[in-house]
Amino acid sequence: MRYEMRFSGSGGQGVILASVIVAEAAVAAGLEAVQSQSYGPEARGGMCRAETVLSRERIWFSKVTRPNFLLALTQEALDRYAPDLAEDAVVMIDDALTVPKGLDKRQVLALPILATARDKVGKLMTANIVAVGAVNRALGLFDQQALHEGVRLHIPAGTEELNWKALDAGAALVTDEQAAAFARPLE
């Protein structure tokens, strides 16, 4: 089965890196993964979008058309991408956002991602790593070794501790009940 993930927000929030890390962790875990992103002015301050497709089989078509998962860190991104979702899609949003009409609230996992990065981790720029920690915990994607490998390959040397802290803080945002409800083990 093919699992399509879309990561969205505004340029500078690191959503592209989040999608790359998830793809890298998938490869480390022995899965197939394809990652791509929107380029151009969009990636420099405007709305920004990146996509990762996961599968246990070879992935042919590389793009996301009906996401099974959406991460939205801005209202603009949420409003724009909410209508395209697959039926049982999981939507993770920053809890400062308003869930648009037409999106079933039971699909939505609203978490204080930005606030956690700013206040608990101490650096707003770790919001993407906090999000990755939360995504991994909610969907039950990878073990810690694969996840750490995915992160380690894409951060500057010497920032590991900060990033492990961000991952853990993200995971801690998801309750056991939520993790049970949103788990999407890859078939």
Binding site: A23, A26, V27, E32, A33, V34, S36, Q37, Y39, S62
Partner: peptide, 9 residues
């Protein structure tokens, strides 16, 4: 652009 910009294993 598809192949140039995509990442995969």
């Amino acid at each position: 652009e598809i192949v140039g910009h995509m990442r995969e294993g």
